[in-house]
Design a protein around this nucleic acid. Structure first.
Lengths: 327, 327
DNA sequence: ACTAACTCTGCAATGGTTTGCAGAGTTGAC
DNA sequence: GTCAACTCTGCAAACCATTGCAGAGTTAGT
């Protein structure tokens, strides 16, 4: 069924070695021979069997990507970036959805290890020791995790918070709630770090709430607490939460942005699509996916540049405005 | 680096054949021998190289999935289903994002063909001839496409429309706009078919608008037309469009559902998260992904059951209510 | 005790490709 | 005309696992 290098060799009246070389080291075969080989290969629709190739070269041409949940728009955007970059490099992506379960995550990395050249691991909550162990099994690039000695691409969340706080401060907000996501997440810690640095600098009092689940429901839950604390603005851990906040505020008759400003985080597609488009800090998720694959492909990288920082950017839309008292 | 079957064989003082069999046909090796082999394998952390295995068995243990856009919540849900089912079957999924480009799609199917046992192809718009050609290259299961002789899993859109129209009719709506998606899409045709059957039966006049792009922007654009036609309810091609409609209606001061009822299609996560949760027809996307992989795995399937129909279900939330005139 | 049947194991071929090594043929300098 | 250097090509081993076949050893039937 499948056409192999042998049929091409027969068709072009050369040995298999020559066919192989015509593809992998073209300058090593006579131009005329190469032409013939390529033509026959084309006619037969020959495509080298990558598994067989991988067996001997040790490089598979595959990139593994593991995410906690493909259906989460944050990760699907990362995934899209990975897939795009991989395709450019004629690599294939192996996807694993770890279903938010660290055990599955570890298992999946193990299973993938031999069949990929490297793995992009999006693991916001897996513990450090485990991560280090996994890094020993296969070349890894972490996404938004900072582990000694393991390459990673990091998005500058702290600076994103800074921009958001500056924005709110400039609008005149003096009391802002921060709705934390999972306490153990790296991004969460960065946010807090950024917040604690930026709040005083902008004459803003930060009311730290949470942790909450980083979901729509988490936002719903958080909204009431924020309201009870008498803040004029909230800074949500991510857009999903922000949407929950919006929903809950609407249900409680609090107008956004008139009575409460809301800032999200991530800039998932959906955040421009609510009736009141969401002001949010854009995380370059797709770019991060691309960067991660880049680092895997580039072997020097492991030596020189262990971390790649990507900037974030505040996108001001409709959910932020000066607070009632300064209008 | 990687531990092979040979080191296990040496460690357990048996031949490689025995090690191989201990894994693949356990009942064929002496229990005591098997125990020893498994133990050594465990200690060494041996995992069979699937590429090498595939070379000889002809089965790779890989499933390809190609979608037009991973970041689209519809497809990421399908993908999640595929990934979950594949994992259960100890298979791996190869993902390709065709970036909405039919050429890329065809290319990617070709490139995957040799390295997978089958491909789940989500290709709402690729033309028929092309699809048939691709089906010759690799075992294919189509999603929401109906091509003679090619296995597929289909979601019963027409019945979904029926449910939606019945619902609106029962609420008292007599003039309902249908916002069509891309004219060439199979789902689009099914919707129309369902609509034309259901509207008269429910004493509803269907105003057929479109086609529009199946996106938020498409919905924005469509909303104005629907408004101009004086309908009391709209049935959008998908939730993304419905969200666009909602947004545009809000901008134009039309209250939903008071002045206009809106029904979406798909039930993506986001549709429960808008301030006014969306009434929508749920498409079993994750189940469809699972079913597609199922069909690929099951080789009998190709003979017996070429099509698998999945039911849809109307989810009534907050965007539908009786029209003003009957209240 | 002999043979048949059965259980377990190993040998060696196989799959599709790459690659080190060596051989064949050319070219050119002396 | 000889030889070195060079270009191109082929042979065969290697990668890692599976599997048909056959052999060794055991059990059981007569």
């Amino acid at each position: 069924m499948a056409v192999t290098i042998h049929e091409v060799a027969r068709g072009a009246e050369v040995s298999v070695s020559t066919v192989s070389r015509a593809f992998t080291v073209p300058e090593m075969v006579h131009p005329e021979t190469r032409r013939r080989v390529l033509q026959v290969a084309g006619e037969l629709g020959y495509q080298p069997n990558r598994a067989a190739r991988g067996l001997v070269t040790g490089r598979t041409g595959n990139i593994g990507v593991v995410v906690p949940d493909v259906a989460n728009p944050f990760f699907s955007a990362v995934l899209k970036g990975c897939a795009a970059r991989a395709r450019e490099a004629r690599h294939v992506v192996f996807l694993a959805d770890a279903a938010e379960d660290p055990r599955v995550e570890a298992e999946v990395v193990g299973a993938m290890a031999k069949q990929v050249d490297g793995i992009v691991l999006c693991s916001p909550r897996e513990d450090l020791a485990q991560l280090e162990r996994l890094a020993g099994i296969a070349p890894l690039v972490l996404l938004n995790r900072d582990v000694e000695g393991v390459p990673s691409v990091l998005m500058d969340s702290a600076d994103g918070v800074r921009q958001a706080v500056e924005h709110l401060g400039a609008l005149g907000h003096r009391r802002v709630a921060h709705l934390a996501g999972p306490a153990t997440s790296w991004a969460g810690k960065e946010r807090l770090r950024g917040l604690r640095a930026a709040a005083p600098a902008n004459d803003v009092e930060a009311v730290e709430l949470g942790p909450f689940p980083p979901t729509f429901q988490g936002g719903v839950q958080a909204a009431d607490l924020a309201l009870a604390r008498g803040v004029t603005a909230v800074l949500a851990f991510n857009d999903l939460m922000a949407l929950g906040v919006l929903s809950r505020l609407a249900a409680r008759g609090v107008a956004v942005p008139r009575d409460m400003s809301v800032v999200g985080f991530d800039d998932i597609e959906m955040s421009g699509m609510t009736p009141e488009p969401l002001t949010t800090v854009r995380m370059p998720m797709e770019a991060a996916g691309r960067a991660a694959v880049d680092m895997l492909l580039d072997e020097q990288t492991t030596e020189s540049e262990l971390q790649r920082w990507l900037p974030t950017q505040l996108i001001v839309r409709s959910t932020t405005t000066p607070p009632a008292e300064v209008r």
